[in-house]
């Protein structure tokens, strides 16, 4: 899975540079964030603004990432749109994830927090 990682002082932005998050590539995303949390970085913005399709397998991996980061960690999902945004709403998982329309808004939240 193609990912771009941008390290900031207090958080990390991971930009998914693929059109899909599904059963094929979602485990790679979990592995990447697992490696990141191993270095102590548990505040993550996941920028999915380029993603045009995600299935429930992908959503399940995002939940596992949320659990992995734990109570002291923070995960913001940024840029969900179209059917990807609908997936969060239909499953009501938009109640669970902190979501922002765009990565810039997510950065502001992370910086203030």
């Amino acid at each position: 899975m193609k990912l771009q990682t941008i390290e900031k002082d207090e958080f990390t932005i991971i930009k998914v540079e693929e059109k899909r998050i599904d059963a094929v590539n979602a485990p790679e995303l979990r592995q990447k964030i697992n490696e990141l949390s191993g270095t102590g970085q548990t505040r993550v913005i996941l920028d999915i603004s380029n993603v045009t399709f995600m299935d429930s397998s992908g959503l399940g991996v995002l939940v596992s990432i949320l659990k992995m980061l734990g109570g002291s960690g923070e995960l913001i999902i940024a840029g969900a749109n179209g059917i990807v945004s609908d997936l969060f709403k239909l499953t009501r998982m938009d109640r669970i994830f902190r979501m922002c329309d765009d990565p810039e808004s997510a950065e502001q939240i992370m910086t203030v927090a």
């Binding site: 429930s56 399940g60 939940v63 949320l66 997936l87 239909l90 499953t91 009501r92 109640r95 669970i96």
Partner: peptide
């Protein structure tokens, strides 16, 4: 239920 942090089980409902 979202509060249970499920990792699967949405397919049929969707």
């Amino acid at each position: 239920e979202p509060e249970l942090l499920p990792e699967s089980g949405w397919g049929m409902g969707l």
